[in-house]
Design a binder for these strands. Structure first.
Lengths: 338, 338
DNA sequence: TTGTACGCGTTATCAA
DNA sequence: TTGATAACGCGTACAA
């Protein structure tokens, strides 16, 4: 592992000169710069991150805190990797690297976050799975750590966020379903107190009112994410005393389970139960086609990255960097399921 | 952000004492140790990683190099997150953290790897998507970076690896299919020159011989991973002049696409085309049930982590640490698809 | 048992 | 334009 010292010795110049040459400082002779760059290339020199971090106080790493579900039912399996890809595509332009950290399910996730921050591992963080009231946001604000959340929260510390347009989804879904004559429309949300659950519930109620439909609490179904829950959902819905004729699903994997559950009973999505899905990757393999709302995840990742860049003053010479707060729009994909 | 200096000042002792107390050195007064630990807790002191790394030459981070497919068709969407979870569960016991790095699709992945290594970000690495001949293995060996590969390779530098028992799968699959009377059995493998492609092909040929079946190259189908390829697979297979009666699939998402493709033609998996899948999460939602080979991914992750720990001499006082090289076994899940 | 001082690799400041 | 040197936070050898 060649260090800057080796490089300097090899060239017969001082380490200061080498450092300046490599970091594009102005006050260095053109010829020496070229010699240094060439030698660095040849010897495969790459600056040690620890030394660099220690000196300049930043690491060039962006941490994404990924929380896994204790039961291993990651709602995000099909979601996050594409987002990561989008993020990295932007971060690369700024010489930054995305570092995904697995918040160990055993440890209290807030504790984990504290350690990551205090160790000074990352220059900025991305939080996901935002709760309605989210202590992590308070913590990061207090610590002055630049961060962006993927998902909104009622905990508002002026932080930038990006989110999916859940309101738009519910509005569109209920417009559509009522137009088709549905009067009993169920909404399926996660058990966990994630912020989008509240968002969807709120809009759901409002939309029902708009159409003069009475709100029935039993039609808001709280259930874990994952395909197996989707299967369970079938019995749950079909065995209700006054069962819904349509279901709005928020988890990506629920449609798969529900299709299966219906199939086992000889029922057909769309004909026997209307069904709308959200952000369902793999949706194209369902038959009959799933009517659903699609989000561009790669694009979302890119936006998250940009929002983050605005929070890193040493990278942008922006006088007054904007606080990005956006819901990314959906594409409605018409299918036969509802 | 409280540093060791603040802590020392706060307690009225020297930083040396604080450091010793925190790092469980023997030569420190019991009472002082307790005072230090208590104060550290209260002030929320966590050692800065850069300083620590620089001093002791390790970071406490394990890097997992995740390569995304240029087309965004991650074969691993459903695969890796569970593996990560398993890894972190073990690493936590050793005070290590998993750090997943996204190899940018734009950059040559070998270049990316070089940077990660030279920057000294991680104490050890995990490579995935091993190629039949894999330069990355040579590189890491030359650099003396501890690493484990997830997947075998013909590039053998004595590195530890873990892999899925693809041989076992193919052997079992062909035993089963021939017993059912199938004579034309197709094998679907990735286009990319991943090592397991070769493994499967080799065993496939051998197994055909065993049953006196002639090897037909057109029955080894090379196609990208992803659900859409699965759909394409339907036409591909069905329009062959002498079409197979059974298919062995290696990609997790292919079954979904193929089910769809068959459904569109009014065909039923198992009845019109026998079909065996590998490591298919979400398989439980397919109807008719998919016959497939299941792997315990969390468990796999744990094994990878242990294999890695053996490579970190400063953690284990093992005189002669074993080089782990294991294929993890599958569970056969009988379904109706073949 | 504790304090002092050095060095890890790098960048920044200042003097030459 | 360049070289010498301090400083970043930490752990440890050595002196007290």
């Amino acid at each position: 592992m060649t260090g800057i010292k080796d490089l300097a010795q090899h060239l017969g110049v001082s380490i200061g000169t080498v450092s300046r040459a490599l970091n594009n400082k102005i006050d260095v002779n053109q010829e020496t710069r070229e010699r240094v760059l060439k030698a660095a290339q040849e010897l495969g020199y790459v600056p040690n991150q620890a030394g660099r971090s220690l000196r300049q106080g930043n690491t060039g790493l962006i941490g994404f805190i990924l929380e896994t579900d204790p039961e291993g039912m990651m709602q995000g399996d099909l979601f996050f990797i594409r987002v990561f890809d989008g993020m990295q595509s932007v971060l690369s332009e700024y010489g930054l690297n995305l570092m995904v950290m697995m918040a160990p399910s055993s440890e209290q996730s807030d504790e984990y976050l504290k350690k990551i921050v205090a160790r000074g591992l990352a220059d900025a963080l991305v939080l996901s799975a935002t709760r309605r009231v989210d202590q992590r946001i308070d913590f990061l604000s207090d610590q002055n750590v630049p961060f962006v959340t993927l998902g909104r929260s009622q905990t508002d510390r002026g932080q930038p966020w990006l989110d999916l347009d859940f309101e738009g989804v519910v509005v569109h879904a209920i417009d559509r379903l009522t137009a088709q004559g549905h009067k009993r429309i169920a909404l399926v949300v996660p058990e966990k107190d994630l912020n989008y659950r509240t968002v969807m519930q709120t809009v759901y109620k409002k939309q029902l009112e708009k159409y003069g439909l009475t709100f029935d609490p039993s039609l808001v179904i709280e259930i874990n994410p994952g395909e197996n829950s989707g299967v369970a959902l079938a019995s749950l819905v079909l065995e209700m005393e006054n069962r819904p004729t349509a279901v709005i699903l928020s988890d990506q994997l629920h449609p798969f389970g529900l299709y299966r559950g219906l199939a086992d009973r000889g029922l057909v999505p769309g004909r026997d139960l209307a069904m709308l899905g959200v952000s369902a990757r793999l949706a194209s393999v369902l038959s009959p086609n799933l009517t659903h709302y699609r989000f561009k995840l790669f694009d979302l990742g890119q936006r998250v990255a940009h929002a983050l860049i605005h929070r890193l003053p040493h990278l942008t010479q922006e006088a007054d960097p904007p606080v990005v707060r956006e819901c990314v729009p959906f594409t409605f994909v018409e299918g036969e399921s509802g």
